[in-house]
Design a protein around this nucleic acid. Structure first.
Lengths: 242, 242
DNA sequence: AAACAACTCCCCAGAAATAGCGAGGCCGCT
DNA sequence: AGCGGCCTCGCTATTTCTGGGGAGTTGTTT
């Protein structure tokens, strides 16, 4: 069977990660981690649905630039595959059947990305989505041993990388808003579920007029200009669970 | 300082968890975990976007029944607080200021829930959301020691519980609606920002008629009955970020 | 006791969203 | 070369929502 991989002091890595105070620190940590784990690449990659992305890692700047320029975000089977999964995934198990995907892969390898890869999706509030990836060039057997040995600490690393990334995001400051009253919460919830006012009022066993008062007052408290806006704000502030 | 908590064989727990083949196994694992960690309660709690919920854990059936019957999902500060967070959270740091929340808390304690708690939010594809919680009755100092000692393995446990739950209940994950097209994402985003159709169309530099087509097609893809519903679903599935 | 927040009900006119029909051009994939 | 997805534009009628008013009860907090 294949080699045994280097033993890694997981606690030390995690402690360094938790001390990090900015993206540069994360970059330093990730370089250290690569050396500690004796693999070619590690990458933390934040993706949002608007197509913005950033992160840190050891891929060559040329590859990163090309990835962004070519909008490989929309092609990369790692991104697309992890989008519908929770569990970490080996690159081999993704769907490489399309022509675009195979082209992407061979190009990635040209730019120094490993032939093996293991990616862990992480998701935060409001649809935040990020990947933590370990990549290396080696045989399938060797890679299998690596995964077995390090899968769990890698999950923890992914978790803490994402935690740090969220901390560093300025716009994620929890904006304090007056809490909604219970009936207002109900009203927002039913509207978010697609009920129209008649049905929501019926469900809440109040008149539609009364319901409107709740919607209006919730809208006012949330600083929203219309019902849809109010529901969106209530959701993104975590005031309702839908 | 407080006692030192029992040493736990993390790898053995995780291995048992990974062998689990059904919800009953998860229940058995969680009972074992409680004993191993010497705490009163552990709970895995899946919260569905429709307000359905299920899970496993050691809370008394009476409390679980009451929780569901009273729809405490919409009151529970743990659920609401974790909704906006990524990192694990101590119950003390949540918002207990509302009257409903304080009532909920005292009732929970009556039903045997611990005065201390530590909850780890987990998120899967399409807005799946679950909590893994450890709860105990003890002093703040003791709980602090427990958290410091076991935080990381608890995160791993949360991860694997959620992984298993997703394996067992694939039909509960909201179906992967075909992803919205870029223009549909734009439309949903502007509506979530409170723009009316005229302003959204203006911002997107298209006619209002065209905008309506996007709204309609997004609504169809999302299985939503109206615009507000569509925006809410797009948000809870992480298709738009506002 | 007074103030305040929450809950309930009511009217009306104008603005906005929805449901139902169209149309054509562009692009990528098979 | 055809299929499907996406982007763009149009019409009409009906339903629903919004933004102004107002008023009374309960309960908690100061």
């Amino acid at each position: 069977m294949a080699q045994n991989w280097h033993q890694v002091d997981v606690d030390r890595n995690l402690a360094a990660l938790e001390r990090a105070a900015g993206l540069e620190d994360l970059q330093a940590v990730i370089v250290d981690l690569c050396e500690a784990y004796r693999i070619n690449h590690m990458v933390y990659h934040w993706v949002n649905s608007q197509g913005d992305q950033y992160g840190c890692g050891t891929y060559s700047p040329a590859w990163v630039a090309r990835y962004i320029e070519k909008e490989y975000l929309r092609v990369d089977p790692v991104i697309l595959g992890c989008n519908q999964r929770f569990h970490p995934v080996d690159w081999k198990r993704l769907d490489w059947s399309s022509k675009a995907a195979r082209l992407f892969r061979s190009e990635a390898i040209e730019y120094g990305v490993g032939n093996q890869g293991f990616s862990i999706p992480m998701r935060g509030p409001n649809g935040q989505y990020a990947l933590f990836t370990a990549s290396h060039s080696c045989s399938d057997d060797e890679w299998q041993v690596f995964k077995n040995q390090h899968r769990r600490p890698l999950i923890l690393l992914a978790h803490f990388f994402n935690q740090k990334a969220l901390e560093f995001e300025p716009e994620r400051v929890p904006e304090a808003s007056r809490t909604l009253s219970p009936r207002e919460v109900d009203a927002m919830t039913f509207l978010a579920m697609g009920y129209n006012r008649a049905k929501a009022a019926d469900t809440m066993e109040i008149s539609e007029h009364t319901l409107r008062v709740y919607i209006e007052s919730a809208r006012f408290k949330l600083g929203a200009v219309n019902t849809t806006h109010a529901v969106a704000r209530a959701m993104s502030r975590g005031l309702i669970v839908v």
